[in-house]
Design a protein around this nucleic acid. Structure first.
Length: 750
DNA sequence: ATTAGGCGATTTTTT
DNA sequence: ATCGCCTAAT
């Protein structure tokens, strides 16, 4: 086939070895995704029917991208390939088969929050003190137990201390609760299919026969449950192809088992192993550094990554004063490098270990007028108002879903208080029925006064009404009617505070999202929208093409590449991140994470660390990360900034005004020479041609479009004042006309 | 029923 | 340092 010519010999071999178990060890940047994509395309061109192929990826985004590339190669019919994350593909299977294991096909998917509140509910009905036993910790134990395929009984008998004993107790109840709620958590999406296959060998056989070819991406990050699933599903045809790189295993913390890749040869003695060792992504410098870094890890598969690419530039290490200086230096470097290397802003990525680090970086970018997108952080679908509306929809799809029902029973306020809820819960528990069923029998509730009973009846009538409506109404129509009915939008608008306004917008956005979803996948039921929402991840919503610097965690960056990469916060304790003492295995995982970060780089890598950083509200003076020193000296040069001439940025003075900062901070700041002039000169250079540059570091002129955190987008109608007292009049698209103090408004030029 | 105050988590990374 | 949740007090 002609398209195979796009591949190098090693890739071709890996792609054409279609039969039998195959493991592809693919180094960073060696065209792993390409190999997978072409393998699927190749299979189809050989006459394999698309729906006989199962391809499991790590993110939905990866799946979608791969799919569209396959369609380009072999045509449209290939959209029938079963491709997606483990979770989404298995959810799809469960939607069909759930009844065989005692669930309804309309089961709800619980996210971590939902499952946490279920745990809390159970703890309080068991009378377990939430102070003595953290619900969070209990939930984690349960999740871990599930990932190791231990049921409550097994977990209970292996319990090593009081905490685990209690956790086992909760675990048992939790499983029952999920079953009565007709709900599954993330772990269940992997485990329930196993239960299904054990209970119904025929069903297993069906899928075993259907999936003639199975491909698994990022195999190094699969956990025990995923491993068992793959083994089972592939058992009949044995055409299993796993692709991975042990050096990039970074999810052990959530149960990923690196042994899955290390032991593949033992599991499949007749397997063939291919190695992709030519790197197409990075310069020799980058690759050399990465190689030296990973050599410090003991456990790994030997491989020899090489490249034909040029030597490239040295790595630059930035030692900066503190996190603000760090952000500033990175911003400067971006401006400098983008003009020097003729790059777009979308060619830059700033990576960090923890989400908390993004704030100072964002501030610096904003101050310098550099557009950015951030992956992760506060997710849209996790916001309260969104979760509230979604909870209504979930109940309408699955009235057994107690968690969602409890969430909305008194929202908006309808006079059903905590005490009443408690009574309802007890009544439901005693009658072995769901809460919704208990609500319908409101008359038999003891100790509830008539007025409250009336409120309850009104509520259950409301739900009943929508249960009927959903039969004939389109999902988007239903959602709109519901929101209207509840009067949420009106309430928020009346409230008038910026927070309420932003919530109002969010709900509107949710409604549009539902409409949009239904238009794309015609006549899909509401439940499939809810499923999509539950399984969406941060990286899935990232717009690659937007011309802006990308900020994200190192974990999110896996699988991506950028011409210029900054890895920030390279300090002992932060990266590698460790609590007090770090175990060897954990340190190795941190190092692999660093390796992943370094190998995202195509041309030029910057590493940064600070001399002082505020963490947990305290000033700390960290030590440079050992990882920096693992890079050979000839590949790296160190630049120190801010030692004498620390810039006083606007943010600091803002913080002072608001009275933030420890006394240590304040004293320190007072001693600092004010070098605002320097800073602002440097700053204004980047804004040539703009009018009304203000001290807050934002440059506005009349007529430009800006974005406000609360009010959304708007047009600048006028600017007045200087420095701290600078004001702008902005006409917002949704929020009307506002007079804003630039110093506080945090306007972003769009 | 509402509010103030306190306490713990957050600051690991995600489906 | 800040947030959000929980509890206790009014």
């Amino acid at each position: 086939m002609s398209f195979l010519q796009d591949l190098n010999p090693a890739q071709q071999e890996a792609v054409t070895a279609t039969e039998g178990p195959v493991m592809i060890i693919a180094g960073a940047g060696s065209g792993k995704t390409r190999a997978l994509t072409y393998r699927v395309a190749h299979l189809i061109s050989l006459g394999v029917r698309p729906f006989e192929i199962l391809a499991l990826t790590f993110t939905n985004k990866a799946a979608n991208e791969m799919k569209s590339r396959i369609i380009d190669l072999v045509g449209k019919e290939s959209q029938d390939v079963w491709m997606g994350t483990f979770h989404s593909v298995l959810a799809r299977v469960l939607r069909v088969e759930a009844e065989k294991i005692g669930f309804g096909r309309n089961f709800t998917i619980y996210d971590t929050d939902d499952s946490l509140s279920a745990v809390k509910g159970i703890m309080s009905s068991l009378g377990l003190s939430q102070q003595q036993f953290s619900p969070h910790g209990i939930r984690n134990r349960i999740s871990l137990a599930k990932n190791h395929l231990m049921n409550p009984r097994e977990y209970g008998s292996a319990a090593a201390d009081l905490f685990e004993e209690k956790a086992a107790l909760v675990y048992d109840q939790y499983e029952r609760a999920l079953r009565t709620n007709n709900a599954m958590d993330f772990d269940d999406l992997l485990i329930r299919p196993l239960e299904l296959f054990n209970q119904s060998p025929k069903t297993l056989e069906k899928y075993q026969h259907r999936f003639k070819y199975i491909l698994v991406d990022e195999y190094q990050d699969t956990n025990r449950a995923q491993y068992v699933l793959i083994r089972k599903l592939g058992d009949y045809h044995q055409n299993l192809c796993v692709v991975g790189d042990d050096a990039q295993s970074i999810y052990a913390f959530r149960g990923a088992d690196i042994r899955n890749i290390l032991d593949f040869e033992n599991d499949y003695p007749d397997c063939r192993i291919f190695r992709l060792e030519q790197n197409y992504r990075s310069t020799k410098t980058i690759l050399g550094a990465a190689d030296q870094i990973i050599k410090n890890n003991r456990d790994q598969i030997k491989k020899n990554l090489w490249t034909d690419n040029p030597q490239g530039e040295q790595i630059t290490s930035l030692e900066t004063e503190d996190e603000k200086d760090e952000g500033y230096q990175i911003a400067l470097a971006i401006l400098h490098e983008s003009s020097r290397l003729k790059l777009d802003l979308k060619d830059f990525a700033i990576l960090y270990r923890t989400n908390a680090q993004s704030r100072s970086l964002e501030d610096a970018l904003r101050r310098n007028g550099i557009p950015y997108t951030i992956v992760g952080g506060i997710e849209f679908y996790k916001r309260k108002e969104i979760k509230d509306v979604l909870a209504y929809l979930k109940v309408i799809v699955n009235p057994k879903d107690n968690e969602s029902l409890l969430r909305i029973i008194n929202y908006p306020y309808r006079g059903i208080g905590e005490t009443t809820v408690k009574k309802i819960r007890t009544s439901a528990e005693q009658g072995h029925e769901t809460i919704f069923e208990a609500l319908l029998r409101v008359d038999s509730l003891a100790g509830v006064n008539e007025r409250t009973k009336k409120h309850i009846t009104e509520f259950s009538l409301l739900i009943k009404k929508y249960l009927e409506l959903k039969v004939n109404m389109s999902a988007s129509e239903l959602a709109r009617t519901l929101v209207d009915d509840l009067g949420i939008l009106g309430d928020l608008k009346k409230d008038g505070t910026p927070e309420a306004l932003s919530r109002w917008e969010n709900i509107q956005e949710l409604l549009s999202a539902i409409t949009e979803f239904l238009r794309e996948s015609s006549d899909a039921p509401l439940s499939s929208f809810l499923e999509e929402v539950s399984l969406i991840s941060d990286i899935d919503t990232w717009e690659r093409d937007r011309n802006a610097v990308t900020l994200m965690t190192l974990h999110s960056a896996k699988g991506l590449e950028f011409p210029v990469v900054f890895i920030s916060g390279l300090e002992e304790g932060l990266f590698p991140l460790y609590p007090s003492d770090i175990e060897h295995a954990e340190l190795e995982e941190e190092r692999r994470l660093f390796y992943v970060g370094v190998t995202r780089t195509m041309q030029k890598l910057f590493l940064s660390y600070v001399r002082s950083r505020i963490r947990y509200g305290d000033v700390t003076f960290p030590v440079r990360s050992r990882f920096v020193d693992e890079i050979p000296q000839e590949l790296i040069s160190i630049v120190r900034t801010g030692a004498r001439r620390r810039e006083r940025t606007q943010l600091q003075s803002e913080e002072e005004r608001r009275g933030y900062g420890t006394s240590v901070n304040r004293r320190k700041k007072e001693r600092l020479p004010s070098l605002e002039v320097d800073f602002h000169q440097g700053n204004s250079e980047t804004h040539d041609g703009f009018e009304g540059a203000t001290e807050s570091g934002i440059s506005l002129k009349v007529g430009c479009t800006v974005e406000h955190e609360m009010f959304g987008r708007g047009r600048v109608l006028g600017i007045s004042g200087m420095g701290d007292s600078a004001k702008a009049i902005v006409q917002f698209e949704t929020a009307g006309r506002k007079h804003l103090m630039l110093k506080y408004a945090n306007l972003r030029v769009v």
